[in-house]
Amino acid sequence: MPTDSGQATYLEAVGLALDSEMDRDPDVFIIGEDVGQFGGAFKVTKGFLEKFGARRVVDTPIAETGFTGLAAGAALVGLRPVVEFQFADFISCAFDPIINVLARHHWRTGDAMPVTMRAPFGGRLRAGPTHSQSVESYFAHVPGIKIVMPGTPEDAAGLLVSSIRDNSPTLYLENKYLYRRLRASGPLSLDPIPLGVAKVVREGRDVTLITYSAGVSQGLEVAEELDKDGISVEVVDIRTIVPLDVETIVNSVRKTSRAVVLHEAAKRLGYGAEIAATIQEEAFWDLDQPVVRIGALNTPTPTSPPLEDAVIPQPAQIAETLRKVARA
């Protein structure tokens, strides 16, 4: 069981939030491959089996369609399942129940569908083309799924609490690169953080960087660097891509008049396209410059370090883009 040392890692924050929701609500259970006696592939549920028992910590066969659909049925009759996908890459095997059952059931019928799907995603772990995918855009196009993408341990905890309590299906994407690299700055709060509320994580004057998940810590580091050159970057962490907090984004862009969108997913039809389009619809006349998107190249994610680094956005590229937009 993760203990709250006051310095929880991103991974521990996920575990603590899940643990506290399972303490709070007997209808919450966790289901997935190797989540029980093994404690999960990344150890988010380490100790859960001992604490909550096999009734609520459910190891499954390798059957993503099966256990995702099972979660839907259990949710329909009042339980609040938390589904763990071992890697977000494998969520493609559950695409059908997510799209056709979970996402549209409430709209079709009015029945609540409180399923939380947790999935570790993303690159920079040298895990290659089918263990590094960013899957958010596959699902963002589909009405009916909320998509939660925390970039800090604090948000990982509070947003998971809200996801589990939400009556809609939520896709909660954990950035596995951040798991053991980020620590909470103080004692971790397990209070819910509302879905659909972005956060200005750094105030600035010259350009707004809109990002989420690993882009937040990456963006903040770059912003500190640029500060030395007198470029003041405002960083907006949107935290949930669905629902999207348009107001916070637009307010920031109105202030800085320049916007760069950053994510690790491929740039083409990545979520940045939606954000850029929204900005031009809502704040076109406030812009001094076109909105610029930073995302991965349109290739699968390679394994070998020099190759992966060439594909996924790197600090130098982010800094250069921000500098260019801020000074143009």
Binding site: F29, R55, R56, T65, G66, F67, T68, G69, L70, A71, A72, G73, A74, A75, L76, V77, G78, L79, P81, D96, P97, N100, V101
Partner: peptide, 15 residues
């Protein structure tokens, strides 16, 4: 698609 959902309803009963 009703099959996985049916396992979930049964799961809830057992749970």
């Amino acid at each position: 698609a009703n099959f996985p959902v049916a396992t979930g309803m049964a799961f809830a009963s057992k749970y």
